[in-house]
Design a protein around this nucleic acid. Structure first.
Lengths: 157, 157
DNA sequence: CAGCTAAATGACAAGAATTGTTAGGTGGTA
DNA sequence: TACCACCTAACAATTCTTGTCATTTAGCTG
């Protein structure tokens, strides 16, 4: 995630205005480096500083950031959309037990698409490893919703 | 996708009832082999045969099939959820132009999770190649702030 | 074959997530 | 400073999915 100053400049370059609300959202996202917040989570963080910012404004700014490529929009399954503050090329571990998500850096160099897709121009490859984290031990009861206790090595959601 | 008879047996084994509506949904799904319909699309197909089936019933039956592992629930991005009639291990090409999706069979044997995630039990690996299909030529108007992400050796495959 | 019971159905409406509308406010520039 | 396009916030609408509940029905049992 770029600094608040860089984002400010990028917004101005695009003809978008830089308001206190937006800068507050920038700061909130910066504090969430490595996390995968929902729009609601960002909104909650922003409210701590500017209590009058509407959820709509947060959605709008997040969408602007996604359009600028400064934020990744994640579709990790059901529920609210999640945003990824880390725009480096990376993949995700998604725990089906607690719903948390971690960044991982896997080697995709050996991953190639069959020739049958030759006329398809691939611009991005999304990889999600689904399973259960250490705190959500593999459990035959899929419906069990247990509270997580600990977290894997790099634990930011 | 298993045959209507096999699905009927599986439902009975699970203590689920097999109604005319459900068998009609089974048939509709069978006719969609290889497609990625939304619940609404399945509903539309079913209405051609049984005009009184509610969308709720379709959702219910599709969710049952997903719970039984006879149907895959796809989260390909925004919009309504899509279902995959093909439950073999495979990946997807998702066109950002027309929204269509194709099955592909890529070799994931070389794709492994980094050691940092050793205490994560991976049960499935979702791979989606995003880009543009042959009919949706890359759009020059698109503001390309984002760099191509994760494209292996050959960007066009 | 009749009866029982848990499950399924369908009409309706609620819920969750996201976006449109609109009147008024404001950043950035001349 | 003044202007204007853009932004904000409240509200409502939209889209997708699921809950509620009275009624019906599949499939077992005797």
């Amino acid at each position: 995630m770029k600094s608040v100053e860089e984002l400010t400049d990028l917004f101005r370059l695009r003809g978008l205005k830089v308001t206190p609300q937006r800068q507050c959202i920038f700061r909130a996202l910066h504090a969430m480096e490595g996390a995968h917040p929902s729009a609601e989570a960002v909104h909650a963080a922003v409210l701590g500083e500017l209590p009058m910012v509407s959820l709509k404004t947060v959605y709008q700014t997040l969408n602007d950031l996604v359009a600028m490529g400064e934020l990744r929009h994640l579709g990790l399954g059901s529920g609210p959309a999640r945003f990824d503050v880390n725009i480096d090329t990376h993949q995700h571990l998604a725990c089906e037990g607690c719903g948390r998500t971690w960044d991982v850096y896997a080697d995709l160099s050996a991953l190639h698409v069959p020739d049958s897709a030759m006329d398809f121009a691939v611009s991005a490859t999304d990889v999600v490893f689904r399973g259960r984290c250490a705190s959500c031990a593999p459990d035959p009861d899929e419906d069990l919703q247990k509270e997580p206790v600990g977290a894997p090595a790099s634990a930011r959601i």
